[in-house]
Amino acid sequence: MLASKILHDDEVFLGSDELIISKTDLQGRITYANRTFIRLAGYDEEALLDKPHNMIRHPDMPKGVFKFLWQELQQGHEFFGFIKNATIGQGFYWVFANITPDFDSKGRVQGYFSVRRSPSAEAIKVIEPIYKNMIEIERRHSKPDAPHHSFSYLNQVLDSKRVSYERFVMQLQAL
């Protein structure tokens, strides 16, 4: 917590030998956060449990990305993506997140599981300007429409590169 406060508006880094892990219920309320999560975000466990996951959302993250995230999860797919999160002290950290549905023994989705890995620095250089443009587009549209427009911009970018979203982020992470 202290570190985050000192690094006000500064970047903190997830080590390449570390994982940030969290779980949520079906509504995205945090049901578990591991120690790395707690250390980087700067909140203690009690402050995180039962809170919506957007509590660490960073304003630089376009809504369109989360719209796509939920869309994928609701179809039973896993999601990969680069996400910028906010720390308690208004610092930030980038992760390469993987979110998957959690099934109970009867095969029903009972929550979601997220593992974040240290992102490739090259990938962040590519994705940051794209997110900036998405945010810009979202600003120009009314709230309910904004995610749709920024997401279709993302799709245009992918189309021009003739690559699917997942393959794109995977290949970025491999850079």
Binding site: K23, T31, Y32, D44, E45, E46, L49, D102, D104, S105, Q110, G111, F113
Partner: peptide, 11 residues
């Protein structure tokens, strides 16, 4: 085989 349970409120 239920690997998704965790211990919480560890304080």
């Amino acid at each position: 085989g239920e690997l998704h349970h965790r211990v919480t409120h560890i304080k």
